[in-house]
């Protein structure tokens, strides 16, 4: 989780990623930032994020993102 928080802070230091629960719904993260974030996630956590996983439910909060990463790691 710490690694993910680091990635997120680097991407946009002004956002409170710890508490924000509607990163997509409130348009805090736009689609291009998501692309950069996914590239980071794939590199850091050694997973492949398929396009079908890019839904608000998986990216609205740091927690949701981490849950998705763990799931993708398990699925291998």
């Amino acid at each position: 989780m710490d690694e993910l928080m680091e990635l997120l802070q680097e991407l946009d230091p002004e956002v409170d990623f710890e508490n924000e629960e509607a990163l997509i719904d409130d348009r805090i993260l736009d689609s291009l930032t998501i692309l950069a974030l996914i590239a980071d996630i794939e590199e850091t956590f050694d997973v492949t994020v398929p396009a079908v996983e890019i839904v608000p439910a998986n990216f609205n909060s740091a927690k949701a993102m981490y849950a998705m990463i763990e799931r993708l790691q398990e699925e291998g």
């Binding site: 689609s31 692309l35 996914i38 994020v49 398929p50 396009a51 890019i54 839904v55």
Partner: peptide, 10 residues
Amino acid sequence: RDYVFYPVSM
């Protein structure tokens, strides 16, 4: 966005 943008960019 869901059926063109993300599939192409991914």
